[in-house]
Amino acid sequence: MPRQATPAPTAPPKSDPGVGTAASPPYFGIVILAALVIVGVGLRSTASIIAPVFLVLTLVITVAPLRSFLVKRRWPGWLASVVSLLAIYALLLVILGSVVYAVVRLVDKLPDYASAFTRIFNSLLALSTRLGYGQQQIQDLASSFQLSSLTAPAQALVGALSGGASLLILIITFVLFLALDSGSMRERIEVIRETRPHIADGLVNFASRVRKYWIVTTAFGLIVAIMDYVALLIIGVPLALTWGVLAFVTNYIPNIGFIIGVIPPALIALLDGGPGKALAVIIVFTAINVIVQTIIQPRFTGDAVGINGTVAFISLIFWAYLLGALGALIAIPATLFLKSVLVDNSVPANWINGLISSDPKKETPARQRQRRQQEVPPAERQSGRGRQG
């Protein structure tokens, strides 16, 4: 009987690449989240240094085109760097100096309204007495609380802002070196692109977006501040210029910046002219905020930010918790950095854009490749550079 041939052993089935590809992104996202938690602990412990340094870094990126423009106009490289350096110092003075100015003016003005505050409080006490609600508790509160007690926290804030002389020197020195080195940044990015094209694309993407964000937000902040200032002058609210400056700074804080900016002028209006004047301030500020910051501004910042409103609000809480008050100011740029470097230019993590992007259809891999090619200068596209990303 002929011997039957033994069938050849079959190779074990290869794993379906589609399954691995489909399963890897969620696990990759978990690893990213775990890494962010670890990094967050370190950021929180060094917030007093990281927050101002990152703010300076984004401002240097924003001012970088000014140096290129001056060099193209045949200015000496050192002179173009000096002009850029002075522009960065001016921006820092406007942003941080505005906060100090508003707080100092508020501290000086609050004691003048102590009697007005007592009068309003007594009116509320009389109203509660007629209604029969908590008369004894309100009397105890009225006797223990004075408006002048609000000046202590405000003075502590002024001391914190003015007491960091060593940190201020560090920032000034950091700006100096970073501004002088910014002229060779394009060559450095090209060196990174040769071995890590996705990282280079992420850095270029972040620079483009954060530059547009600062420019557009600053422009609309000035518009809102001027409109608020004029409205407060018409209503007759004291310290109108101070509240206009405060509105300009709080415009950088997403979602709740308007609320922070309207409380002090509404309070002063209440103490100076009663509920009618305070209500007028709230109505005017709300109307300006809805028209300019809610309807018009997002049409210009949408492409720059690229994150939805929920993520913007969560990022505000997240960065304010990690980096303090300055973290609220740089919440959007910090989120843009993580999005550009870790999400937009990483294939395993690109699925996260479906959750955080303001327009997910614009964040598909094909659209991102097309946008990256458009961000590469024409001379580099002709020479074949930038096609690796």
Rank of each mutant, 00 (worst) to 15 (best):
L239I: 12
L239R: 13
A240D: 13
I259G: 02
T250K: 04
T250F: 15
A247W: 08
V262W: 04
G261A: 14
L241F: 13
G257N: 10
A240H: 07
P238F: 12
A266T: 12
T242F: 06
G236M: 07
F258W: 11
I253T: 09
W243L: 09
F248L: 14
A266W: 00
G244H: 05
L270I: 01
G261D: 10
V237P: 00
G244R: 05
P264Y: 05
I253M: 11
P275K: 08
W243I: 02
F248R: 04
G261E: 13
N255W: 11
I268V: 15
V245A: 09
A269M: 02
A247C: 03
I235K: 05
I253V: 15
T242I: 04
L267E: 07
L239F: 10
L239K: 15
L271C: 03
G274D: 07
L267C: 05
F258C: 11
W243M: 10
A247P: 01
A247M: 06
N255G: 11
N255S: 15
G274I: 02
N255Y: 00
A240Q: 13
T250G: 04
I259H: 08
I256W: 09
G274K: 10
I256T: 14
L246T: 00
G261N: 08
P264G: 03
L239A: 13
L241Q: 03
A269Y: 00
G261Q: 06
G244K: 02
I253P: 00
F258H: 14
A247L: 13
G261F: 14
F248C: 11
I259R: 13
A266S: 09
G257L: 03
D272Y: 10
I260Y: 14
N251C: 07
V262Y: 06
L271A: 04
G257R: 12
L270S: 06
Y252N: 12
V262A: 12
A240F: 13
P238Y: 13
I259Y: 07
I260H: 13
